[in-house]
C-alpha cells in the first residue's frame, strides 16, 4: 500500500561560488501520516546529509518551515504527503534571502518589518510594579490576539506578487501587525502616527488586493478583512488631518 514518492528539491548554496541553482530528485517510500517534515528528515538522514532546511517546533507554531510545496507557500511541518500526487516539488520561499537549499532568512525580514512598523506598545505611562494592571475588556483582548496569532512564517509575503516586485512592501504580515496595535488601547499612537508608518505604497496602499496572503496564511488569519480594516482606518486618518 505504500507509494513511492519523488521529491524534486531546489538545491543551491549561495556561499559556494561553484554551486549553481538546480533541482535534485529523491525517491522515498511513503509512510502513514507522513509530513514533509518527516520526509525531509528521512532524506537527510538516509540519502543526502548536506540538504539544508529549517524546522524548529514541527507543530505549526514557530513559523520556521514555510516553503513552496507544489506551487503553494505552506508550512512543511503540517503538510501531509498523502494530499499530493506522486511527485512533490519543493522550492524555497521567494522574496526572502536564500540561506541555502530550502532555508531562507525570514528572521531578518521580519525584524526589519517590526522596526518599520514600530511593533511595540507606544505609551507614555511608566510601568508601576506595585499597581494593579490596567483593566481591559476581554473582547478587546481576544481581538488583539486574533491578529497577534501571526507566526511570521512568510507565506503571505512569498505568495504576494506585489511583495515580489517591490522590495519595501511590508505585505499582509506588516499591515496586519499595524492593525494589531490599532485595536490595542494600550498603544497611544494617534491615527496620524499610524499613517506615517504605513500610509504609503510600502504599506496599506501598496496592497493591490491580490489575496494570495488570505489564501495562504497557515494560521487562517482573516487577512482580507484585516487589510480592509487598516486601509479604511488609514484612509480616514490621512483625510482628517
Amino acid at each position: 500500500m505504500s507509494r513511492q514518492l519523488t521529491f524534486s528539491i531546489f538545491r543551491y548554496n549561495p556561499n559556494d561560488p561553484s554551486s549553481a541553482p538546480r533541482m535534485q530528485e529523491y525517491t522515498l517510500n511513503e509512510s502513514t501520516g507522513m509530513t514533509i517534515f518527516v520526509a525531509l528528515n528521512q532524506i537527510r538522514e538516509e540519502q543526502d546529509p548536506s540538504l539544508n532546511f529549517d524546522f524548529v517546533c514541527r507543530a505549526a507554531i514557530c513559523g520556521s518551515c514555510a516553503m513552496v510545496i507544489n506551487g503553494r507557500p505552506r508550512l512543511a511541518c503540517k503538510t501531509l504527503t498523502k494530499d499530493f500526487k506522486d511527485t512533490i516539488t519543493l522550492m524555497p520561499l521567494p522574496v526572502f534571502k536564500l540561506v541555502g537549499d530550502l532555508a531562507v532568512d525570514t528572521g531578518t525580514w521580519f525584524r526589519h518589518m517590526s522596526l518599520k512598523t514600530e511593533s511595540w506598545i507606544h505609551t507614555n505611562k511608566k510601568f508601576d510594579p506595585i499597581a494593579q494592571e490596567d483593566r481591559m475588556d476581554n473582547e478587546v483582548a481576544l481581538n488583539i490576539y486574533e491578529s497577534e496569532r501571526c507566526i511570521e512564517c512568510g507565506c503571505c509575503i512569498a505568495g504576494c506578487a506585489t511583495a515580489n516586485i517591490r522590495e519595501e512592501f511590508l505585505g499582509a504580515a506588516g499591515i496586519n501587525r499595524v492593525g494589531r496595535f490599532m485595536v490595542d488601547p494600550r498603544d497611544e499612537r494617534s491615527d496620524m502616527e499610524y499613517f506615517e508608518v504605513i500610509g504609503s505604497d510600502e504599506g496599506a496602499f501598496g496592497c493591490m488586493g491580490l489575496m494570495a496572503c488570505d489564501d495562504n496564511c497557515p494560521m487562517g488569519l482573516p487577512l482580507q478583512l484585516q487589510l480592509a480594516f487598516v486601509r479604511r482606518k488609514i484612509t480616514m486618518a490621512g483625510l482628517k488631518s
Binding site: 494592571e133 490596567d134 481591559m136 481576544l142
Partner: peptide, 13 residues
C-alpha cells in the same frame, strides 16, 4: 505578569 501586560501581552480578562 503585569509587566508583560504593560509590554503588550493580551492576557485574557
Amino acid at each position: 505578569v503585569r509587566q508583560m501586560s504593560y509590554w503588550g501581552v493580551p492576557w485574557n480578562r
